[in-house]
Design a protein around this nucleic acid. Structure first.
Length: 342
DNA sequence: TCTGGGGTCCTCTTTCTC
DNA sequence: TCTGGAGAAAGAGGACCC
């Protein structure tokens, strides 16, 4: 049987900030946007002290500010968090070469080939991260990624949870469906309408019913996931499929100069991004979100692959030209897809 | 009144090509 | 030349994740 670890750094961004600004330790710290809670933006990470006030990820900064005006608000410093993240990942790779990155603060580790017990390895990982980086993490251990991820969420912060085959009914089934990876707010709400609230209730549904409600792909996934079945391997290497830049205006705008200037800048940013990482693109997509939050995209696929700023900008403006700008614009973005390595 | 930014994947529809 | 169909590719939108 496989042995998979899911390692989840505790309140990662806030913890990194508290580490380099020790005066923030023990205080409510909120990381998000530009760091100005009177501006548009959402919470990326709240320290555990801030969570006591009801502040959580994805909450608008202005709401967080209302809940706790005395909290320390800081901008997101991706470069610094990436540096620390790399150090964490390097520690993990010392325990197994089979590691899957899941964003900046999470990873899976396949330790099936290790002679040591899973628990011993997990303890050593926690010790090493604590000693070398002064950070804590929560680790879940199970036979697959799906269960390991649920396990790491069980005890936080600084937790260590093992989920065995025989624990599925007792531990997994009473949990709300939302705890299953891949079940978001929409699916949760839909399941509620057919009186399915827990993973166990989902597991009791026959495959045909799930396919009826969700189609063969997602229905099949839910059928297996609710029973703790997940044979998906760790993905240790992947190629990017797209690259994008988008920005939400501080105030909705109908000023064409502003919109055009911003689009040109975003186009240049994505062009620079793919150039730097050595890719060419063939499809350029423009995204517009209006003041009423309605979002539209228009794409242009070219005959030749390119990383040229001018070509991408022209394609972006051509795509934008197919959208009617009758309402004020809240957000504008440029995405390039159909990528090919140079 | 509020709802970021960077991604992936899936589904459905439209368009192109043979 | 017209018509229709099949299958691929492109386009659009939406759900989800961190």
């Amino acid at each position: 049987m496989r042995r998979i670890l899911h390692i989840d750094m505790d309140a990662f961004f806030a913890a990194v900030e508290q580490k380099r600004h020790p005066e923030l330790i023990g205080k409510p710290v909120v990381i998000g946007g530009s760091g100005d809670p009177t501006e548009r933006g959402v919470v990326s990470t709240a320290s555990y002290e801030a969570r006591k006030y009801g502040i959580h990820s994805a909450m608008p900064l202005r709401t967080a500010y209302k809940l706790c005006p005395e909290a320390v608000f800081l901008p997101v410093d991706y470069e610094e968090y990436s540096r620390v993240s790399e150090k964490v990942k390097n520690i993990l790779r010392e325990f197994s070469p089979i590691m899957e990155d899941v964003g900046i603060d999470e990873a899976f580790l396949d330790i099936s080939e290790s002679a040591e017990s899973s628990e011993e390895i997990a303890k050593k990982i926690k010790e090493k991260i604590k000693k070398e980086l002064d950070l804590t993490c929560s680790i879940g251990i199970s036979k697959n990624k799906l269960l390991a991820k649920i396990a790491s969420d069980f005890k936080k912060p600084d937790g260590l949870t093992i989920i065995n085959e025989r624990d599925i009914e007792r531990i997994i089934w009473p949990l709300p469906v939302r705890k299953l990876w891949g079940v978001g707010p929409k699916t949760e709400a839909y399941l509620k309408t057919i009186e399915i609230n827990t993973i166990g209730e989902l597991a009791a549904l026959p495959l045909e019913k799930l396919i009826e409600h969700f189609g063969p792909s997602y229905g099949g996934y839910l059928y297996e996931a609710s029973k703790g079945i997940d044979e998906s391997p760790l993905v240790t290497h992947w190629e990017p499929k797209s690259s994008s830049r988008e920005i939400t205006f501080q105030k909705d705008t109908d000023n064409w100069q502003t919109i055009a200037k911003t689009l040109a800048e975003l186009a240049k940013d994505v062009a620079d991004d793919i150039k730097r990482s050595g890719y060419l693109c063939r499809t350029v997509t423009v995204k517009i979100r209006f003041e009423d939050f309605k979002t539209y995209t228009r794409a242009k696929t070219m005959t030749e692959f390119t990383d040229s700023n001018e070509v991408i900008r022209k394609a972006a403006f051509e795509a934008l030209g197919r959208l009617e700008l009758k309402k004020r614009v809240r957000l504008i973005g440029v995405r390039v897809g159909n990528l090919k390595k140079v």
